[in-house]
């Protein structure tokens, strides 16, 4: 009960302080708001890019064509070797006979031409199609496969994939960098607000100390204040995230630029982002006010 009373008293006093130093609090809240909006955008972009690269990765296939003279036995040996490559997720094999039959089914002309081909003079190649686990090292994996004996060629849409993977990793790194920088700026501003609150309440703090108020009770209101600033600062970004994302999703029909880039479905996703924003706001607020309290509140 006693702890509860102290807590209630501190929260009240923190709210009072936010209102009393309104201009200062307002500046911190605005800054937190702007930061969190950008953080939200960054999170949404990163999550969507991640989602999209994962889709892409799932679709990535390496085609491995064997030498024309390779037999089924050779193919089996190569299969074993492919299985040993760590990045290879799944392997499916088509013999030249299968390929021939497939092509024959596709058109009448192929059918008549290929009918005359026997196992020995079939000019087609045995082929493997592979799925990889990590698309970012697909080039390395392809090169590894090329070295295997009796492998004729390896195809995986090298250039486009390489470029995309590079762009995505740059985008991701840049957004993460920007988010960290913004969080630091916000932390600095909140900590500055708390510092000024501490200075403006120096008299009160001194009296509290002299009449025997414990350090925890003196410090708590400032921590709550940082917490409250962070939470209030998160409200607008959360609203913008939820409605903004839903509107964009609806307007675009869930695809960005082309049907290749599929967006994450808004439900659950926007709430997850919102909770994350709330947590970031609260934690940044608390940590930055804790910093100020430690630095400027000598009790």
């Amino acid at each position: 009960m006693k702890v509860f009373r102290i807590l209630v008293r501190n929260i009240k006093s923190a709210f009072k302080s936010v209102i009393r130093n309104f201009s200062l609090s307002f500046a911190s809240i605005i800054c937190t708001t702007i930061t969190l909006i950008l953080v939200s955008i960054a999170i949404i972009i990163t999550a969507n890019v991640n989602n999209f690269t994962k889709d892409l990765e799932n679709d990535l296939t390496i085609m491995v064509f064997l030498d024309r003279n390779a037999s089924i036995d050779d193919a089996n040996i190569i299969r074993n070797e492919l299985e040993e490559i760590k990045n290879v997720d799944s392997i499916s094999f088509e013999s030249k006979e299968d390929v021939k039959n497939e092509m024959k089914n596709e058109s009448e002309i192929f059918n008549t031409i290929m009918d005359s081909w026997t196992e020995e003079n079939n000019p087609l190649q045995h082929e493997f199609s592979l799925k990889v686990k990590d698309a970012t090292i697909i080039r390395k994996t392809a090169n590894q496969i090329k070295k295997i004996e009796k492998v004729d060629s390896v195809k995986y849409g090298e250039d486009i994939i390489d470029q995309m993977v590079n762009i995505f990793s740059v985008v991701q790194k840049a957004t993460i960098g920007i988010v960290i920088a913004l969080i630091l700026v916000t932390a600095f501003l909140i900590s500055n607000t708390i510092k000024l609150t501490i200075f403006s309440r120096k008299n009160e703090i001194e009296i509290m100390r002299l009449v025997g108020t414990s350090n925890v009770v003196i410090r708590l209101p400032f921590l709550f204040e940082g917490f409250i600033l962070g939470i209030i600062g998160a409200i607008i970004p959360i609203v913008i995230t939820i409605y903004g994302y839903m509107i964009i999703y609806e307007k675009t029909g869930g695809y960005l630029f082309s049907s290749m880039i599929k967006m994450i479905k808004p439900f659950n996703f926007v709430f997850q982002v919102s909770i994350l924003l709330l947590i970031i706001g609260a934690v940044v607020g608390m940590i930055s006010s804790y910093r100020s309290v430690r630095k400027y509140l000598k009790v």
């Binding site: 006693k2 702890v3 102290i6 008293r9 025997g212 009770v217």
Partner: peptide, 10 residues
């Protein structure tokens, strides 16, 4: 009342 309040007394 200030000292007592900060001690969390009813």
């Amino acid at each position: 009342a200030f000292p007592l309040e900060s001690m969390g007394i009813k």
